[in-house]
């Protein structure tokens, strides 16, 4: 085992463990904090693949901004163990069925992929570096990039309009 493999296994264990803790933690605040830990270990994986920009943007956007908003909402709603409503049994069944079907779809999609001959480029390849990523985004993928930016703008305008309503 070389050092990359050791780091990979540590990161994977941390990612899986904290992802499990997200769904098993009783207190939603702890769930959010575990989710942040998950994002960190995934960022670690990105760094192993030399995708530094993706790694840091994952931390800035998800761990630094979106999770803060999650925490805001949860803290303001004051969700505690005691006040958590008991869910109806039918609702639990529906949740299990929909989650199971998602798993089925994922397994079906991954079943035919050829994993044996695909090797992840670890510690090499510079497509993930910010310079190459920028060039790709503004040359090959200009149209999708601009469309998604318009999408974000409309979401922002929508948020302002809703926020202004008395």
């Amino acid at each position: 085992m070389n050092i990359t493999q050791i780091i990979f296994w540590i990161l994977s264990v941390v990612a899986l463990f904290s992802a499990l803790m997200v769904i098993t933690a009783r207190n939603p605040v702890y769930s959010v904090l575990w989710l942040i830990a998950t994002f960190f270990s995934i960022s670690g994986h990105y760094i192993l693949l030399n995708a530094q920009f993706l790694a840091i943007v994952n931390i800035i956007v998800y761990a630094g901004a979106i999770m803060v908003l999650f925490l805001f909402v949860i803290m303001l709603m004051n969700l505690n163990k005691e006040s958590e409503p008991r869910k109806h049994r039918l609702l639990k069944l529906a949740g299990a069925v929909s989650g199971g079907s998602l798993l089925l779809v994922l397994v079906a999609a991954l079943r035919d992929t050829d994993l044996k001959h695909e090797h992840a480029l670890v510690n090499e390849g510079n497509i993930g570096l910010i310079q190459n990523l920028g060039k790709e985004l503004f040359s090959t993928y200009t149209v999708p990039f601009e469309i998604s930016s318009v999408l974000f703008l409309s979401a922002m305008v929508g948020a302002v309009v809703i926020g202004k309503k008395e």
């Binding site: 931390i59 630094g64 803060v68």
Partner: peptide, 25 residues
């Protein structure tokens, strides 16, 4: 001397919120 130096600073700054938020809650 990572090639995302400034973004790293921003990443850490954006995490700085948690100390206050977690402690306050």
């Amino acid at each position: 001397d990572i090639n995302i130096g400034i973004l790293y600073v921003f990443g850490v700054v954006s995490l700085g919120v948690y100390g206050i938020l977690v402690g306050g809650w």
